[in-house]
């Protein structure tokens, strides 16, 4: 897709991004991607395609060679704090995301790092918990919760920071069908730009307006869910069917 980026409308712009893991494994080999503001994009592809690695570049956890810009801000060492205010990353395993003894502490962790005053932190925590349907769970311990609840709290810890762009790594993996459906509905209620790394066709179809297919560290297809997800030849070639 040849698009000329219009700065005011661009949420994420990636150009020629390469990344090699410290052990020498190449993970990204020249990724170009443009995400417009307000768009919800499914990032799909087989295991090892580089989807999660790409997600980690979106708020500067990893930095490769090439160019990554979010909301017009280049992702580099200097801008990393501002970038992390803009881009919220929800990790796949909630036990990696939730490290505090209580829900309240975990959800307030991000806003506190943003150095918000106490009153606003409390407000942000309450609002985020309400968004994910977990209001009143402030004093519970995350490690006592069910997997689905932990997933919701993980999302809340990032929503509390009020990010412009939400990046979710496998949001419904390991959830039971009802948990999957509820989480999908929850995602649909959230405004803003979203990038969702997933293997789940339902999420791609029901939540996303666009599907980006990756393999071997490159974007191999990009289009509407109806086109991409019905192209059996394409899906089979890239290990999704």
């Amino acid at each position: 897709m040849d698009v000329i980026p219009i700065p005011q409308l661009t949420a994420i712009m990636i150009e020629g991004l390469h990344y090699t893991y410290p052990d020498g494994t190449p993970a990204l080999r020249g990724v170009d991607l443009l995400v417009r503001k307000g768009e919800t994009v499914a990032l799909m592809g087989p295991n090892g395609a580089g989807k999660s690695t790409l997600a980690l570049h979106l708020n500067g956890i990893l930095t490769g060679t090439g160019k990554v810009e979010v909301m017009g801000l280049e992702v580099n060492k200097k801008n990393v704090r501002a970038v992390r205010d803009l881009v919220g990353l929800v990790f796949q395993d909630p036990d990696d995301q939730l490290f505090s003894p209580t829900v309240e502490e975990d959800v307030s962790f991000g806003p506190l790092n943003q150095r918000l005053p106490a009153e606003q932190v409390r407000h942000a925590v309450a609002r985020a918990l309400t968004w994910v349907g977990m209001e009143g769970s402030e004093n519970r311990s995350p490690h006592h919760m069910s997997f689905g609840e932990k997933k919701r709290i993980s999302l809340a810890t990032v929503l509390a920071m009020d990010p412009e762009i939400l990046v979710l790594d496998e949001p419904v993996a390991n959830l039971d069908p009802r948990g999957r459906r509820e989480f999908t509905e929850l995602l649909n209620t959230l405004d803003g730009t979203k990038v969702i790394v997933t293997h789940d066709f339902d999420i791609a179809r029901d939540v996303c307006g666009r599907v980006v297919l990756m393999e071997d560290g490159q974007v191999v297809a990009d289009g509407g869910p109806a086109d991409i997800l019905s192209d059996n030849g394409l899906l089979e070639r890239h290990g999704l069917l």
């Binding site: 708020n59 956890i61 992390r84 990353l89 990696d96 962790f109 991000g110 790092n113 943003q114 920071m161």
Partner: peptide
């Protein structure tokens, strides 16, 4: 896991200190 937890913390702006609400 420690590596991933640290990444998740960095993603939320962790800079080595734990500010407290009250």
């Amino acid at each position: 896991r420690a590596e991933r937890v640290y990444q998740a913390m960095s993603a939320r702006g962790f800079d080595g200190t734990f500010p407290r609400v009250s």
